[in-house]
Design a protein around this nucleic acid. Structure first.
Lengths: 228, 228
DNA sequence: ATATCCTATTTTGGATCCAGTATTGATTCT
DNA sequence: AGAATCAATACTGGATCCAAAATAGGATAT
Protein backbone atom coordinates (compact mmCIF):
# COMPACT_ATOMS: atom_id res chain seq x y z
CA UNK A 1 0.00 0.00 0.00
CA UNK A 2 3.03 2.26 0.04
CA UNK A 3 3.90 4.68 -2.73
CA UNK A 4 6.49 2.34 -4.19
CA UNK A 5 4.09 -0.50 -4.86
CA UNK A 6 3.22 0.17 -8.45
CA UNK A 7 5.68 1.82 -10.80
CA UNK A 8 5.41 5.51 -9.96
CA UNK A 9 5.37 7.94 -12.83
CA UNK A 10 8.82 9.46 -13.26
CA UNK A 11 9.36 13.04 -12.10
CA UNK A 12 9.76 14.48 -15.60
CA UNK A 13 7.67 13.97 -18.71
CA UNK A 14 10.86 13.30 -20.60
CA UNK A 15 11.72 10.26 -18.48
CA UNK A 16 8.16 9.04 -18.57
CA UNK A 17 8.10 9.26 -22.35
CA UNK A 18 11.50 7.60 -22.58
CA UNK A 19 10.35 4.59 -20.59
CA UNK A 20 7.09 4.39 -22.51
CA UNK A 21 8.79 4.34 -25.90
CA UNK A 22 11.31 1.79 -24.70
CA UNK A 23 8.50 -0.40 -23.45
CA UNK A 24 6.59 0.05 -26.68
CA UNK A 25 9.61 -1.00 -28.73
CA UNK A 26 10.55 -4.01 -26.61
CA UNK A 27 6.95 -5.13 -26.39
CA UNK A 28 6.50 -4.92 -30.13
CA UNK A 29 3.86 -2.21 -29.92
CA UNK A 30 6.22 -0.11 -32.00
CA UNK A 31 7.77 -2.35 -34.61
CA UNK A 32 11.10 -2.07 -36.38
CA UNK A 33 10.78 0.20 -39.38
CA UNK A 34 7.78 2.06 -38.00
CA UNK A 35 7.99 5.83 -38.36
CA UNK A 36 7.41 7.84 -35.20
CA UNK A 37 5.00 10.71 -35.69
CA UNK A 38 5.77 13.19 -32.98
CA UNK A 39 2.38 14.85 -32.82
CA UNK A 40 0.46 11.60 -32.64
CA UNK A 41 2.75 9.96 -30.09
CA UNK A 42 2.92 13.06 -27.91
CA UNK A 43 -0.87 13.30 -27.89
CA UNK A 44 -1.18 9.60 -27.09
CA UNK A 45 1.17 9.94 -24.14
CA UNK A 46 -0.40 13.18 -23.00
CA UNK A 47 2.68 15.38 -23.28
CA UNK A 48 3.91 17.99 -25.69
CA UNK A 49 6.46 17.35 -28.40
CA UNK A 50 9.34 18.97 -26.52
CA UNK A 51 9.99 16.22 -23.94
CA UNK A 52 9.19 13.62 -26.58
CA UNK A 53 11.89 14.95 -28.86
CA UNK A 54 14.46 14.95 -26.08
CA UNK A 55 13.60 11.35 -25.26
CA UNK A 56 13.96 10.46 -28.92
CA UNK A 57 17.40 12.05 -28.98
CA UNK A 58 18.43 9.75 -26.14
CA UNK A 59 17.07 6.73 -27.97
CA UNK A 60 18.86 7.84 -31.11
CA UNK A 61 22.11 7.86 -29.17
CA UNK A 62 21.35 4.36 -27.97
CA UNK A 63 20.69 3.22 -31.52
CA UNK A 64 17.07 2.27 -30.89
CA UNK A 65 15.66 4.84 -33.27
CA UNK A 66 17.07 6.43 -36.39
CA UNK A 67 16.77 10.07 -37.27
CA UNK A 68 16.97 12.07 -40.47
CA UNK A 69 16.72 15.84 -40.63
CA UNK A 70 13.25 17.06 -41.54
CA UNK A 71 12.13 13.49 -41.92
CA UNK A 72 11.89 12.55 -38.29
CA UNK A 73 12.45 9.43 -36.27
CA UNK A 74 11.75 5.78 -36.89
CA UNK A 75 12.27 2.52 -35.03
CA UNK A 76 15.45 0.91 -36.33
CA UNK A 77 15.19 -2.58 -37.69
CA UNK A 78 18.22 -4.73 -37.12
CA UNK A 79 19.45 -7.25 -39.61
CA UNK A 80 20.89 -10.57 -38.49
CA UNK A 81 24.30 -9.10 -39.34
CA UNK A 82 23.63 -6.25 -36.93
CA UNK A 83 22.67 -8.69 -34.20
CA UNK A 84 25.77 -10.78 -34.77
CA UNK A 85 27.86 -7.64 -34.57
CA UNK A 86 26.27 -6.57 -31.30
CA UNK A 87 26.87 -9.99 -29.78
CA UNK A 88 30.46 -10.02 -30.98
CA UNK A 89 31.16 -6.65 -29.37
CA UNK A 90 29.46 -7.84 -26.20
CA UNK A 91 31.75 -10.86 -26.22
CA UNK A 92 34.79 -8.59 -26.24
CA UNK A 93 33.57 -6.14 -23.63
CA UNK A 94 31.91 -8.59 -21.26
CA UNK A 95 35.02 -10.75 -21.18
CA UNK A 96 36.99 -7.72 -20.03
CA UNK A 97 34.36 -6.88 -17.43
CA UNK A 98 34.45 -10.40 -16.00
CA UNK A 99 38.24 -10.50 -15.94
CA UNK A 100 38.33 -7.28 -13.98
CA UNK A 101 35.45 -8.28 -11.75
CA UNK A 102 36.99 -11.59 -10.72
CA UNK A 103 39.76 -9.89 -8.81
CA UNK A 104 37.35 -7.53 -7.05
CA UNK A 105 34.54 -9.93 -6.21
CA UNK A 106 33.73 -9.99 -2.50
CA UNK A 107 31.81 -12.68 -0.68
CA UNK A 108 28.97 -10.21 -0.39
CA UNK A 109 28.96 -9.77 -4.17
CA UNK A 110 28.74 -13.52 -4.66
CA UNK A 111 25.89 -13.71 -2.18
CA UNK A 112 24.05 -10.98 -4.06
CA UNK A 113 24.54 -12.81 -7.34
CA UNK A 114 23.21 -16.01 -5.77
CA UNK A 115 20.19 -14.16 -4.47
CA UNK A 116 19.53 -12.55 -7.85
CA UNK A 117 19.86 -15.91 -9.58
CA UNK A 118 17.26 -17.34 -7.18
CA UNK A 119 15.04 -14.48 -8.35
CA UNK A 120 15.66 -15.45 -11.98
CA UNK A 121 14.63 -19.01 -11.19
CA UNK A 122 11.54 -17.95 -9.25
CA UNK A 123 10.38 -15.78 -12.14
CA UNK A 124 11.06 -18.61 -14.57
CA UNK A 125 9.04 -21.10 -12.54
CA UNK A 126 6.20 -18.61 -12.24
CA UNK A 127 6.21 -18.19 -16.02
CA UNK A 128 6.87 -14.47 -15.58
CA UNK A 129 8.79 -13.87 -18.80
CA UNK A 130 9.23 -10.11 -18.36
CA UNK A 131 10.28 -10.59 -14.75
CA UNK A 132 12.80 -13.22 -15.74
CA UNK A 133 14.29 -10.98 -18.42
CA UNK A 134 14.61 -8.17 -15.86
CA UNK A 135 16.21 -10.45 -13.27
CA UNK A 136 18.57 -11.86 -15.90
CA UNK A 137 19.64 -8.35 -16.68
CA UNK A 138 20.26 -7.64 -13.01
CA UNK A 139 22.35 -10.80 -12.74
CA UNK A 140 24.65 -9.87 -15.59
CA UNK A 141 25.03 -6.19 -14.75
CA UNK A 142 25.59 -6.84 -11.08
CA UNK A 143 28.54 -8.93 -12.17
CA UNK A 144 29.76 -6.40 -14.73
CA UNK A 145 29.59 -3.56 -12.23
CA UNK A 146 32.00 -5.40 -9.98
CA UNK A 147 34.63 -4.65 -12.63
CA UNK A 148 34.89 -1.11 -11.31
CA UNK A 149 34.81 0.15 -14.91
CA UNK A 150 31.68 2.27 -15.20
CA UNK A 151 32.31 3.29 -18.81
CA UNK A 152 32.77 -0.28 -19.86
CA UNK A 153 29.47 -1.13 -18.21
CA UNK A 154 27.83 1.79 -19.99
CA UNK A 155 28.92 0.49 -23.37
CA UNK A 156 27.74 -3.00 -22.55
CA UNK A 157 24.40 -1.55 -21.47
CA UNK A 158 24.09 0.26 -24.80
CA UNK A 159 24.62 -3.03 -26.58
CA UNK A 160 22.02 -4.82 -24.50
CA UNK A 161 19.49 -2.08 -25.06
CA UNK A 162 20.02 -2.17 -28.81
CA UNK A 163 18.72 -5.74 -28.91
CA UNK A 164 16.00 -5.45 -26.30
CA UNK A 165 13.35 -5.74 -28.97
CA UNK A 166 14.69 -9.15 -29.92
CA UNK A 167 15.44 -10.56 -26.48
CA UNK A 168 11.83 -11.31 -25.68
CA UNK A 169 11.88 -13.87 -28.49
CA UNK A 170 14.42 -15.88 -26.57
CA UNK A 171 12.70 -15.80 -23.22
CA UNK A 172 9.33 -16.75 -24.58
CA UNK A 173 10.63 -20.29 -25.11
CA UNK A 174 10.53 -22.50 -22.02
CA UNK A 175 13.55 -24.57 -22.96
CA UNK A 176 15.66 -21.45 -23.38
CA UNK A 177 14.59 -20.30 -19.94
CA UNK A 178 15.81 -23.55 -18.39
CA UNK A 179 19.05 -23.29 -20.30
CA UNK A 180 19.59 -19.77 -18.95
CA UNK A 181 19.41 -21.06 -15.42
CA UNK A 182 21.87 -23.89 -16.08
CA UNK A 183 24.31 -21.44 -17.63
CA UNK A 184 23.94 -18.93 -14.82
CA UNK A 185 24.66 -21.69 -12.33
CA UNK A 186 27.78 -22.66 -14.28
CA UNK A 187 28.89 -19.03 -14.32
CA UNK A 188 28.34 -18.72 -10.58
CA UNK A 189 30.39 -21.85 -9.93
CA UNK A 190 33.26 -20.45 -11.98
CA UNK A 191 33.04 -17.16 -10.11
CA UNK A 192 33.20 -18.99 -6.78
CA UNK A 193 36.35 -20.70 -8.05
CA UNK A 194 37.73 -17.35 -9.19
CA UNK A 195 38.18 -18.91 -12.60
CA UNK A 196 37.81 -15.98 -14.99
CA UNK A 197 38.32 -17.94 -18.20
CA UNK A 198 35.75 -20.53 -17.21
CA UNK A 199 33.23 -17.84 -16.33
CA UNK A 200 33.88 -16.10 -19.64
CA UNK A 201 33.52 -19.35 -21.56
CA UNK A 202 30.23 -19.98 -19.81
CA UNK A 203 28.93 -16.53 -20.72
CA UNK A 204 30.15 -16.95 -24.29
CA UNK A 205 28.12 -20.11 -24.55
CA UNK A 206 25.16 -18.30 -23.03
CA UNK A 207 25.40 -15.66 -25.75
CA UNK A 208 25.99 -18.15 -28.55
CA UNK A 209 22.72 -19.88 -27.72
CA UNK A 210 20.89 -16.58 -27.89
CA UNK A 211 22.41 -15.87 -31.29
CA UNK A 212 21.49 -19.33 -32.52
CA UNK A 213 17.92 -18.82 -31.39
CA UNK A 214 17.81 -15.49 -33.19
CA UNK A 215 19.24 -17.04 -36.37
CA UNK A 216 16.45 -19.57 -36.26
CA UNK A 217 13.78 -16.94 -35.65
CA UNK A 218 15.18 -14.85 -38.49
CA UNK A 219 15.29 -17.68 -40.99
CA UNK A 220 11.70 -18.58 -40.13
CA UNK A 221 10.61 -15.00 -40.52
CA UNK A 222 12.26 -14.50 -43.90
CA UNK A 223 10.90 -17.84 -45.03
CA UNK A 224 7.40 -16.76 -44.04
CA UNK A 225 7.50 -13.41 -45.82
CA UNK A 226 10.20 -13.42 -48.47
CA UNK A 227 9.20 -10.04 -49.86
CA UNK A 228 9.66 -7.60 -46.99
CA UNK B 1 35.44 31.30 -53.59
CA UNK B 2 32.73 28.66 -53.77
CA UNK B 3 30.18 28.03 -51.06
CA UNK B 4 32.13 25.11 -49.69
CA UNK B 5 35.28 27.04 -48.98
CA UNK B 6 34.69 27.97 -45.37
CA UNK B 7 32.72 25.66 -43.08
CA UNK B 8 29.13 26.32 -44.01
CA UNK B 9 26.64 26.66 -41.22
CA UNK B 10 24.77 23.37 -40.78
CA UNK B 11 21.17 23.21 -41.99
CA UNK B 12 19.64 23.01 -38.53
CA UNK B 13 20.33 25.09 -35.45
CA UNK B 14 20.63 21.88 -33.49
CA UNK B 15 23.60 20.68 -35.55
CA UNK B 16 25.18 24.10 -35.47
CA UNK B 17 24.92 24.24 -31.70
CA UNK B 18 26.20 20.69 -31.40
CA UNK B 19 29.35 21.49 -33.35
CA UNK B 20 29.87 24.74 -31.46
CA UNK B 21 29.66 23.10 -28.04
CA UNK B 22 31.94 20.30 -29.16
CA UNK B 23 34.44 22.85 -30.41
CA UNK B 24 34.14 24.85 -27.21
CA UNK B 25 34.84 21.77 -25.10
CA UNK B 26 37.76 20.49 -27.15
CA UNK B 27 39.28 23.96 -27.41
CA UNK B 28 39.07 24.46 -23.68
CA UNK B 29 36.65 27.37 -23.96
CA UNK B 30 34.28 25.27 -21.89
CA UNK B 31 36.31 23.54 -19.23
CA UNK B 32 35.64 20.27 -17.41
CA UNK B 33 33.38 20.89 -14.47
CA UNK B 34 31.85 24.03 -15.91
CA UNK B 35 28.07 24.23 -15.62
CA UNK B 36 26.20 24.97 -18.82
CA UNK B 37 23.57 27.69 -18.41
CA UNK B 38 21.07 27.13 -21.16
CA UNK B 39 19.77 30.68 -21.42
CA UNK B 40 23.20 32.25 -21.57
CA UNK B 41 24.65 29.77 -24.04
CA UNK B 42 21.59 29.88 -26.28
CA UNK B 43 21.73 33.67 -26.36
CA UNK B 44 25.45 33.59 -27.10
CA UNK B 45 24.93 31.24 -30.02
CA UNK B 46 21.89 33.13 -31.25
CA UNK B 47 19.38 30.28 -30.97
CA UNK B 48 16.59 29.37 -28.59
CA UNK B 49 16.94 26.81 -25.83
CA UNK B 50 15.05 24.08 -27.70
CA UNK B 51 17.76 23.11 -30.21
CA UNK B 52 20.39 23.67 -27.54
CA UNK B 53 18.75 21.16 -25.25
CA UNK B 54 18.53 18.56 -27.98
CA UNK B 55 22.20 19.03 -28.77
CA UNK B 56 23.01 18.64 -25.09
CA UNK B 57 21.07 15.39 -24.99
CA UNK B 58 23.28 14.07 -27.78
CA UNK B 59 26.39 15.15 -25.93
CA UNK B 60 25.06 13.53 -22.79
CA UNK B 61 24.73 10.27 -24.66
CA UNK B 62 28.32 10.64 -25.81
CA UNK B 63 29.44 11.23 -22.26
CA UNK B 64 30.79 14.73 -22.93
CA UNK B 65 28.35 16.43 -20.61
CA UNK B 66 26.57 15.23 -17.49
CA UNK B 67 22.96 15.92 -16.66
CA UNK B 68 20.90 15.95 -13.52
CA UNK B 69 17.17 16.59 -13.45
CA UNK B 70 16.28 20.18 -12.62
CA UNK B 71 19.94 20.93 -12.15
CA UNK B 72 21.00 21.05 -15.76
CA UNK B 73 24.07 20.12 -17.72
CA UNK B 74 27.77 20.45 -17.03
CA UNK B 75 30.98 19.56 -18.82
CA UNK B 76 32.23 16.26 -17.46
CA UNK B 77 35.68 16.17 -16.01
CA UNK B 78 37.51 12.91 -16.48
CA UNK B 79 39.86 11.45 -13.95
CA UNK B 80 43.03 9.67 -15.01
CA UNK B 81 41.22 6.43 -14.16
CA UNK B 82 38.48 7.38 -16.61
CA UNK B 83 41.04 8.06 -19.32
CA UNK B 84 42.80 4.76 -18.69
CA UNK B 85 39.46 3.00 -18.90
CA UNK B 86 38.60 4.66 -22.22
CA UNK B 87 41.95 3.70 -23.69
CA UNK B 88 41.61 0.13 -22.45
CA UNK B 89 38.21 -0.25 -24.10
CA UNK B 90 39.60 1.29 -27.27
CA UNK B 91 42.36 -1.30 -27.21
CA UNK B 92 39.80 -4.09 -27.18
CA UNK B 93 37.51 -2.66 -29.84
CA UNK B 94 40.13 -1.27 -32.18
CA UNK B 95 41.96 -4.59 -32.22
CA UNK B 96 38.78 -6.25 -33.38
CA UNK B 97 38.22 -3.57 -36.01
CA UNK B 98 41.72 -4.02 -37.40
CA UNK B 99 41.44 -7.80 -37.42
CA UNK B 100 38.24 -7.60 -39.43
CA UNK B 101 39.55 -4.85 -41.66
CA UNK B 102 42.70 -6.70 -42.66
CA UNK B 103 40.74 -9.30 -44.56
CA UNK B 104 38.64 -6.71 -46.37
CA UNK B 105 41.33 -4.13 -47.21
CA UNK B 106 41.49 -3.37 -50.92
CA UNK B 107 44.39 -1.73 -52.74
CA UNK B 108 42.21 1.35 -53.04
CA UNK B 109 41.75 1.42 -49.27
CA UNK B 110 45.50 1.26 -48.76
CA UNK B 111 45.99 4.08 -51.25
CA UNK B 112 43.45 6.19 -49.42
CA UNK B 113 45.19 5.56 -46.12
CA UNK B 114 48.53 6.53 -47.66
CA UNK B 115 47.01 9.72 -49.00
CA UNK B 116 45.44 10.56 -45.64
CA UNK B 117 48.74 9.91 -43.89
CA UNK B 118 50.44 12.33 -46.28
CA UNK B 119 47.82 14.85 -45.16
CA UNK B 120 48.68 14.14 -41.52
CA UNK B 121 52.34 14.80 -42.25
CA UNK B 122 51.62 17.97 -44.24
CA UNK B 123 49.54 19.37 -41.37
CA UNK B 124 52.28 18.42 -38.92
CA UNK B 125 54.97 20.16 -40.93
CA UNK B 126 52.79 23.24 -41.28
CA UNK B 127 52.32 23.30 -37.51
CA UNK B 128 48.56 23.02 -37.96
CA UNK B 129 47.72 21.20 -34.74
CA UNK B 130 43.97 21.14 -35.22
CA UNK B 131 44.36 20.02 -38.82
CA UNK B 132 46.71 17.25 -37.81
CA UNK B 133 44.31 16.01 -35.13
CA UNK B 134 41.51 15.96 -37.70
CA UNK B 135 43.64 14.12 -40.27
CA UNK B 136 44.79 11.65 -37.63
CA UNK B 137 41.17 10.95 -36.86
CA UNK B 138 40.43 10.36 -40.54
CA UNK B 139 43.36 7.98 -40.76
CA UNK B 140 42.19 5.80 -37.91
CA UNK B 141 38.51 5.79 -38.78
CA UNK B 142 39.11 5.13 -42.44
CA UNK B 143 40.89 1.99 -41.30
CA UNK B 144 38.24 1.05 -38.75
CA UNK B 145 35.45 1.49 -41.28
CA UNK B 146 37.05 -1.14 -43.49
CA UNK B 147 36.02 -3.65 -40.82
CA UNK B 148 32.49 -3.57 -42.18
CA UNK B 149 31.21 -3.32 -38.59
CA UNK B 150 29.40 0.00 -38.35
CA UNK B 151 28.31 -0.48 -34.75
CA UNK B 152 31.80 -1.29 -33.65
CA UNK B 153 33.00 1.90 -35.33
CA UNK B 154 30.24 3.84 -33.60
CA UNK B 155 31.39 2.65 -30.19
CA UNK B 156 35.00 3.46 -31.00
CA UNK B 157 33.90 6.92 -32.12
CA UNK B 158 32.10 7.43 -28.81
CA UNK B 159 35.30 6.60 -26.98
CA UNK B 160 37.37 9.00 -29.06
CA UNK B 161 34.89 11.79 -28.56
CA UNK B 162 34.89 11.28 -24.81
CA UNK B 163 38.56 12.22 -24.68
CA UNK B 164 38.59 14.93 -27.33
CA UNK B 165 39.12 17.56 -24.67
CA UNK B 166 42.36 15.89 -23.66
CA UNK B 167 43.71 14.97 -27.07
CA UNK B 168 44.86 18.50 -27.88
CA UNK B 169 47.36 18.20 -25.02
CA UNK B 170 49.09 15.44 -26.91
CA UNK B 171 49.23 17.13 -30.27
CA UNK B 172 50.52 20.41 -28.91
CA UNK B 173 53.89 18.74 -28.34
CA UNK B 174 56.12 18.60 -31.41
CA UNK B 175 57.87 15.40 -30.43
CA UNK B 176 54.56 13.61 -30.04
CA UNK B 177 53.54 14.78 -33.50
CA UNK B 178 56.64 13.23 -35.00
CA UNK B 179 56.05 10.04 -33.07
CA UNK B 180 52.51 9.85 -34.46
CA UNK B 181 53.84 9.88 -37.99
CA UNK B 182 56.40 7.16 -37.27
CA UNK B 183 53.71 4.99 -35.74
CA UNK B 184 51.27 5.58 -38.58
CA UNK B 185 53.98 4.55 -41.03
CA UNK B 186 54.59 1.38 -39.04
CA UNK B 187 50.87 0.64 -39.03
CA UNK B 188 50.66 1.19 -42.78
CA UNK B 189 53.58 -1.16 -43.38
CA UNK B 190 51.87 -3.86 -41.31
CA UNK B 191 48.64 -3.33 -43.24
CA UNK B 192 50.47 -3.71 -46.54
CA UNK B 193 51.86 -6.99 -45.22
CA UNK B 194 48.35 -8.03 -44.12
CA UNK B 195 49.83 -8.61 -40.68
CA UNK B 196 46.93 -7.91 -38.33
CA UNK B 197 48.79 -8.59 -35.11
CA UNK B 198 51.66 -6.31 -36.07
CA UNK B 199 49.23 -3.53 -37.00
CA UNK B 200 47.41 -3.99 -33.70
CA UNK B 201 50.67 -3.94 -31.76
CA UNK B 202 51.62 -0.75 -33.51
CA UNK B 203 48.33 0.91 -32.65
CA UNK B 204 48.59 -0.33 -29.07
CA UNK B 205 51.95 1.37 -28.80
CA UNK B 206 50.46 4.50 -30.34
CA UNK B 207 47.79 4.55 -27.66
CA UNK B 208 50.16 3.71 -24.83
CA UNK B 209 52.22 6.79 -25.65
CA UNK B 210 49.14 8.95 -25.56
CA UNK B 211 48.23 7.54 -22.15
CA UNK B 212 51.75 8.10 -20.88
CA UNK B 213 51.63 11.71 -22.05
CA UNK B 214 48.30 12.16 -20.28
CA UNK B 215 49.66 10.62 -17.08
CA UNK B 216 52.46 13.14 -17.17
CA UNK B 217 50.13 16.05 -17.83
CA UNK B 218 47.87 14.90 -15.01
CA UNK B 219 50.66 14.50 -12.47
CA UNK B 220 51.91 17.99 -13.32
CA UNK B 221 48.46 19.42 -13.00
CA UNK B 222 47.74 17.86 -9.63
CA UNK B 223 51.20 18.87 -8.44
CA UNK B 224 50.50 22.44 -9.50
CA UNK B 225 47.17 22.72 -7.74
CA UNK B 226 46.81 20.06 -5.06
CA UNK B 227 43.59 21.48 -3.68
CA UNK B 228 41.16 21.26 -6.57
C1' DA C 1 26.48 33.76 17.04
C1' DT C 2 24.30 30.02 14.91
C1' DA C 3 20.79 27.47 12.92
C1' DT C 4 16.36 27.40 10.75
C1' DC C 5 12.79 28.95 8.04
C1' DC C 6 10.88 31.66 4.58
C1' DT C 7 11.04 34.44 0.44
C1' DA C 8 13.00 36.17 -3.90
C1' DT C 9 15.55 34.92 -7.80
C1' DT C 10 17.55 31.96 -10.96
C1' DT C 11 17.22 28.11 -13.84
C1' DT C 12 15.26 24.21 -15.78
C1' DG C 13 10.99 21.56 -17.69
C1' DG C 14 7.12 21.85 -20.65
C1' DA C 15 3.27 23.78 -23.70
C1' DT C 16 1.84 26.39 -27.47
C1' DC C 17 2.49 28.67 -31.63
C1' DC C 18 4.75 29.81 -36.01
C1' DA C 19 7.95 28.93 -39.98
C1' DG C 20 10.18 26.06 -43.20
C1' DT C 21 10.80 21.59 -45.43
C1' DA C 22 9.20 17.20 -47.35
C1' DT C 23 5.50 14.62 -49.20
C1' DT C 24 1.32 13.77 -51.64
C1' DG C 25 -2.03 14.44 -55.07
C1' DA C 26 -3.85 16.80 -58.85
C1' DT C 27 -3.04 19.10 -63.13
C1' DT C 28 -0.90 20.04 -67.36
C1' DC C 29 1.94 19.17 -71.19
C1' DT C 30 4.22 16.12 -74.41
C1' DA D 1 -0.55 7.09 -71.18
C1' DG D 2 3.30 8.79 -68.91
C1' DA D 3 6.19 12.24 -67.06
C1' DA D 4 6.92 16.64 -65.20
C1' DT D 5 5.16 20.57 -62.60
C1' DC D 6 2.85 22.84 -59.16
C1' DA D 7 -0.21 23.41 -55.26
C1' DA D 8 -2.13 21.67 -50.91
C1' DT D 9 -1.08 19.20 -46.81
C1' DA D 10 1.42 17.00 -43.22
C1' DC D 11 5.16 17.05 -40.37
C1' DT D 12 9.40 18.60 -38.40
C1' DG D 13 12.47 22.55 -36.52
C1' DG D 14 12.54 26.44 -33.69
C1' DA D 15 10.95 30.57 -30.80
C1' DT D 16 8.40 32.34 -27.15
C1' DC D 17 5.94 31.98 -23.06
C1' DC D 18 4.51 29.88 -18.68
C1' DA D 19 5.06 26.62 -14.64
C1' DA D 20 7.73 24.23 -11.34
C1' DA D 21 11.87 23.15 -9.04
C1' DA D 22 16.30 24.47 -7.02
C1' DT D 23 19.25 27.87 -5.15
C1' DA D 24 20.66 31.87 -2.62
C1' DG D 25 19.90 35.42 0.54
C1' DG D 26 17.90 37.46 4.41
C1' DA D 27 15.01 37.56 8.45
C1' DT D 28 13.79 35.40 12.72
C1' DA D 29 14.16 32.63 16.71
C1' DT D 30 16.98 30.24 19.96
Amino acid sequence: MTAGDRPRRPPTAQQFVLEEIRRAITSGELRPGDPIRQDALAAELGVSRVPLREALKILEGEGLVAYRVHRGYGVVSLSMDDLREVYRIRELLEAEAVRRAIGELTAADLDRLEEIQRGVERAGEAGDVAGMAAANRRFHFTLFECSGMPRLVRHIRLLWEATDAYRSLYYSDGENRQRVNREHRATLAALHDRDAEKAIASLDEHRAHAVAALELAFSEETAAKPGQ
